[in-house]
């Protein structure tokens, strides 16, 4: 997660060269997609937001100050996109696609790697992914975003505290409690899933 961004790719992108942006997409695309998927719970939204993110990146890359770390800068833009999307969704509520297929015929579970050699494990992983999403949606928005920015964005706790304008100790306490809650909920679901599969 602590991979260093290529300064060359960033400066190429800042001069408007496609290779720079392609390199940044290669480096951060997977993590951004994961962040969008877990933050919105929708495959369709994640794909859409990744496209929007690249447009934002093209527009805003020149404003990136080389002295700061790139990842917090990048994932703050991503967090703003997610916040706007969630606000819009609250204003115009539509169904979420957690396990059900969305317009593109994809579901959240479909993105998980297929492991045909071990069907039981694959089903378990898919089900757990689905349950994780449900549990995440039950967390408050700030805690959920802190956990996601920490994991996908690789932000330090200091950067999380700065992003959410809260004390350092509060940021860690929220992440800790959030992770504990998620783990407890999923442990309970895991026993249920195992029992169902027997």
């Amino acid at each position: 997660m602590e991979e260093k961004p290529s300064a060359a790719a960033i400066s190429q992108a800042q001069t408007g060269r496609a290779e720079g942006f392609e390199e940044l997409l290669k480096r951060y695309g997977q993590r951004l997609f994961g962040y969008f998927l877990r933050a919105t719970g929708s495959y369709h939204d994640a794909e859409d937001l990744l496209g929007e993110m690249t447009l934002r990146l093209v527009r805003q890359i020149k404003s990136y100050d080389d002295h700061g770390r790139f990842e917090p800068w990048l994932f703050r833009i991503a967090a703003n996109l997610v916040r706007d999307r969630i606000r819009r969704r609250k204003a115009n509520p539509t169904r979420l696609s957690l396990s059900a297929e969305d317009e593109s015929g994809q579901s959240l579970a479909d993105d998980l790697p297929d492991r045909p050699s071990d069907v039981a494990d694959g089903l378990m992983a898919r089900e757990m992914s689905h349950k994780l999403q449900q549990a995440m949606n039950e967390l408050d928005e700030t805690t959920r975003n802190m956990i996601l920015l920490r994991h996908f964005g690789g932000l330090s706790f200091k950067e999380i505290a700065d992003t959410f304008d809260c004390p350092l100790g509060t940021a860690l306490a929220k992440v800790h409690r959030g992770l504990t809650t998620l783990k407890k909920r999923l442990e309970g679901h895991k026993q249920e899933i195992i029992a169902e599969m027997m």
């Binding site: 951004l32 994961g34 794909e47 994809q106 993105d111 994991h151 999923l186």
Partner: peptide
Amino acid sequence: TAHAAAPARAM
């Protein structure tokens, strides 16, 4: 648990 690979189409 949260790992989610971006499909080639999205990329």
